[in-house]
């Protein structure tokens, strides 16, 4: 069973052959299997499974598979809050810190893919990486960075400033 292959199909229809153990990091994939196991018995264990992932593009899926493959050799240190540091390299191993050093669009796509495929450690890592992007930025910088538009009303701005004062 260790060598069994799962075919993961991206939005574009591109198919990736992935060892079953690697693919099973995704709870979505895992659930697909257990659903089938309920209905059928042993016979389809040998069958090559194909899981369509219509929300995930090929470049993103490739990254996800890279993550899950590396995870087999070196499990990611679980991320615990409150964070002990503000830099990725001090929170997870170097490989994982480098893994999320990607452009912003890819990072958001990875968040979405990790969420859709239900891969908790990857979701934690990518959300952490986004939070580090947010840290230390002013509201103006954040608006530019994330393409957020609307301003607050004056009352809300005043209220936000009061909060700031409390937070020191």
């Amino acid at each position: 069973m260790e060598d069994a292959i799962v075919k993961l199909t991206s939005k574009e229809g591109e198919t990736f052959d992935v060892p079953r153990k690697v693919a099973m990091m995704s709870k979505l994939v895992k659930d697909t299997f257990s659903d089938d196991d309920d209905e059928d018995d042993e016979e389809d264990e040998t069958e090559v499974k194909e899981v369509p992932l219509p929300n995930v593009t090929a470049p993103v899926l490739k990254k996800v598979i890279e993550y899950c493959t590396h995870y087999q050799d070196e499990e990611m240190t679980p991320i615990q809050t409150p964070l002990k540091s503000g830099t990725l390299d001090e929170l997870v191993q170097a490989w994982y810190a480098n893994f999320v050093k990607v452009d912003r669009n890819m990072l958001f796509d990875l968040v979405a893919a990790a969420n859709f495929m239900d891969i908790k450690p990857l979701l934690d890592l990518t959300c952490l990486a986004v939070s580090i992007l947010i840290k230390g930025k002013s509201a103006q910088e954040l608006r530019q960075m994330f393409n957020i538009s609307a301003e607050l009303s004056p009352e809300e701005q005043a209220e936000a400033q009061r909060e700031n004062a409390v937070a020191e």
């Binding site: 809050t81 947010i134 936000a160």
Partner: peptide
């Protein structure tokens, strides 16, 4: 999930971006 990693200052700053 993202904001749960933020400290107080960053969370408040994020809240000043829009309604």
């Amino acid at each position: 999930r993202i904001s749960s990693f933020l400290d107080v200052i960053s969370l408040v700053d994020m809240g000043t971006t829009n309604r």
